[in-house]
């Protein structure tokens, strides 16, 4: 489902003397349907950078990133927009929403964008919020004032609202208590069971061991270290 070959990335800082900072070279990765692959490596090694490149958030300097039939590294913006709507989901570490929008709308939005009937989208959103132990009294409020853990759970509910065939998870269990961590791991297992290809960053080793089938050390793609 996800195939990465010869992927390279460097940043050029035009306002700091045009410094060119290579951060990745020759990255490669394959994830099949129903498989979960963990990105590992020390902090700053480029795990999030790789994930952002797969989402099309960072521009690739070289190589190919196939998600289904689309090469993210060369795709037009509207192809990536479409891919993000129906195929590729991303749970980032930070919730970014329009202020004032109620939580249940935030979670239902990916479904509404896909044209799912409003009642069905809201029902799915509410079921996920309930599973993730967000008190019902909060559903009609904007999540901007919620605690860090609550925002993280709203973000996860939003990411799992649509059954994406490919999912990127950046620290999905960070800042969660044991009960909610269990819910998130079960959601990941369910997504795998329905055939989703998943790439995740997990600092939580026990979580990684439970849901991930393989680990890929991103440090191997650091410039100057590639074999």
């Amino acid at each position: 489902m996800i195939e990465i070959e010869g992927l390279g990335k460097s940043f050029t800082l035009h306002n700091q003397g045009g410094a060119v900072i290579p951060v990745m070279t020759g990255a490669h990765l394959r994830v099949a349907r129903g498989e979960c692959v963990a990105l590992t490596g020390t902090s700053g090694v480029g795990k999030s950078t790789l994930m952002r490149m797969i989402y099309g958030n960072y521009r690739a300097s070289a190589g190919r990133i196939m998600v289904g039939e689309t090469d993210i590294a060369g795709a037009a913006p509207r192809e990536i927009i479409q891919l993000r709507r129906d195929t590729l989901g991303y749970v980032s570490q930070f919730l970014r929403v329009v202020p004032r929008v109620p939580t249940r709308e935030v979670v239902a939005e990916p479904l509404l964008t896909l044209g799912v009937a409003r009642a069905d989208a809201i029902a799915r959103a509410e079921a996920l919020l309930a599973r993730l132990n967000i008190p019902q009294a909060l559903w009609s409020l904007s999540p901007t004032t919620f605690s860090g853990g609550e925002q993280q759970r709203v973000n996860i509910a939003r990411g799992f609202a649509h059954a994406f065939p490919a999912l990127l998870l950046d620290e999905p269990t960070a800042s969660l208590d044991a009960a909610n961590r269990e819910v998130v791991l079960t959601l990941i297992e369910e997504a795998k069971a329905r055939g989703a290809a998943i790439i995740g960053i997990f600092h939580d080793e026990a979580a990684r061991g439970r849901v991930c089938d393989r680990e890929v050390d991103v440090g191997a793609f650091a410039p100057g270290q590639a074999a």
Partner: peptide, 27 residues
């Protein structure tokens, strides 16, 4: 969804909005 950045009457960069804002290419 998409963003175009203008300077002195010309487009200096364009692309997906979050890509242009998170990984800007032009000085």
């Amino acid at each position: 969804d998409r963003l175009m950045v203008m300077k002195d009457g010309r487009v200096v960069e364009d692309g997906l909005t979050d890509q242009v804002l998170d990984d800007p290419q032009h000085g």
